[in-house]
Amino acid sequence: MSIQIDEFSLAVSEILDGYAEDIQEAVAQAVEETGTKALKTVKAKSPVRKGKGGGRYKKGWRIKKERSGVLGTQAQVTVYNKTDGPLVHLLENGHQKAGGGRVEGIPHVRPAYEEAERLLPELTARAIEEAGER
């Protein structure tokens, strides 16, 4: 492939634009993958009440994936509990009992957050490296 000197800047610009789009898409996929893994972790570590109706809290975890920006290349992921949202804070951090005493917290959101915090930079770096190889 030969390029005329006056077309060189246009050719380089097109290559760089394609590379930038590849990276944006790869990073968006890394964000979504990280959110999915965080959801699995929080579900696995969520407490389950004994007796009838147990497991409702654990089954209530959902993930909301949103894409925005030009060509939908910016991703945002939210992990939330649809059925028992107000309980998340109480179960994670513990709370006072009505008759006195305290219920200890059961960490299940924090481990998922820490795993996602560790995983996202790894996946992002890998995505950038692989985008350069295409």
Rank of each mutant, 00 (worst) to 15 (best):
V70T: 08
K82I: 05
G72H: 05
E7V: 06
K37L: 13
G85Y: 09
L16N: 10
V88Q: 05
D6M: 06
T34K: 00
E7W: 04
K45G: 07
P86T: 03
V88A: 13
V88S: 07
V12H: 09
K58Y: 04
T41L: 05
S13K: 14
D22C: 04
L90F: 12
E33W: 03
K65M: 13
P86A: 11
R56E: 13
K45Y: 04
A26M: 03
P86K: 07
Q4T: 10
D6L: 09
G53V: 08
R67N: 12
Q74V: 14
K52S: 15
Q29D: 15
H89A: 12
G55S: 07
L90S: 03
V31N: 01
Q4I: 03
L16W: 05
I15D: 10
R67I: 07
A28P: 00
L39G: 00
G54W: 02
D84V: 01
R67G: 06
G85N: 15
S68T: 12
H89P: 02
R67M: 10
Q29Y: 05
V77H: 10
E92I: 04
D84S: 10
K82P: 05
E21R: 10
R56H: 12
S13W: 00
G72Y: 03
A44C: 02
R49M: 11
E25S: 05
K43F: 04
V70D: 09
K40D: 13
K40H: 07
T34G: 01
E92P: 00
L39T: 06
Y19Q: 12
T78H: 14
V79K: 02
T83H: 09
K40Y: 07
K50H: 02
T83I: 08
G18P: 01
K65C: 11
P86M: 05
L90K: 07
G18W: 04
E66N: 14
A11H: 12
R56D: 14
V48P: 01
V48H: 04
K52H: 13
R67C: 12
D17F: 11
V48M: 01
L91W: 07
K59I: 04
F8Q: 11
L71T: 03
G18K: 11
L16P: 01
R62I: 01
L10Y: 13
L91V: 06
L71S: 11
